Amino acid sequence: MATFKGNPITLVGPELKVGDQAPDFKLSKNLLESVSLQDYAGKVKLISVVPSIDTGVCDAQTRRFNEEASKLGDNVIILTVSADLPFAQARWCGAAGVDRVVLLSDYKDNNFGKSYGVLIEEFGLDMRAIFVLDANDKITYVEVLPEMTEHPNYEAAVAAVQQLL
């Protein structure tokens, strides 16, 4: 069960588990360009899902993974997914000095949220979660936070990536 400030919320989509093949997705990199899982083929992927980049925990989560990105090397891509508009994501990155994490938007049709089981039905946002995928897009680590306002286990997520290097 998932909650927002202790109140139950409904997550739409499958419950993905370690060992599952990661579903493909179509996310907006900006208003004119979309990307899919294949655009990051051959790389280890840490997918950090946040409800909205303009909130404290989401801000901290994205900044933390931006710091970690420089230590993980070129074989790793860190993607931050939210339902924020690409304009808001670009503005936030510029203001925050975030340049190692790729921010992608699920705003058009919540394709990612539905495919990864993190779409919050009540809000049309994606639930805070971490997915680590190996170079062949097999899921090796999953953390879907039970409470939307809590931080993920940063150390465990980074360790899961390091095990794949």
Rank of each mutant, 00 (worst) to 15 (best):
A96R: 11
K108V: 14
F131I: 07
G124C: 10
S36K: 08
V98K: 12
K29Q: 15
M127R: 13
P8K: 04
I9M: 01
Y154H: 09
D54P: 02
M148R: 03
F4M: 15
L16E: 09
C58K: 09
Y141S: 12
G42E: 03
C93A: 15
S115N: 15
L133Y: 07
V57D: 04
L145H: 04
F131V: 07
L31C: 03
V118D: 01
D126I: 07
G117E: 11
K45R: 15
A60Q: 12
D54S: 11
Y154I: 02
L32N: 14
A88M: 13
Y154N: 03
E67W: 00
E121P: 00
Q89Y: 02
Q61D: 15
M127G: 09
V142Q: 01
E33F: 02
L32Y: 12
N30F: 09
Q61C: 09
N66L: 05
Y141G: 12
G56W: 00
D74C: 03
G73C: 04
P152E: 00
S36Y: 02
E68C: 07
L72A: 05
V102K: 12
A88Q: 11
R128H: 04
G124F: 08
I9Y: 03
C58V: 02
S34I: 10
K26H: 09
A60H: 10
K17D: 07
T149Q: 07
A95N: 11
N153Q: 03
Q162A: 13
L27H: 04
R100L: 09
G73H: 08
E33S: 14
A160R: 03
P8A: 13
K29M: 14
G6R: 02
I139R: 11
K45F: 00
G6F: 01
A22C: 02
K5G: 02
V18C: 01
T140C: 10
Q61H: 15
A88D: 14
R100Y: 03
A88W: 10
L72V: 09
E68T: 05
S36T: 15
L31M: 14
L164C: 05
N153T: 07
V132R: 04
L104C: 06
Q61R: 10
S70W: 05
V161Y: 08
P51S: 05
M1Q: 13
N66S: 09
Y107I: 01
F87I: 01
E121A: 15
D84I: 00
L119K: 12
A135L: 00
E68N: 04
L11D: 12
D20F: 04
L16V: 07
E143V: 04
I120M: 12
Q38I: 00
D24C: 00
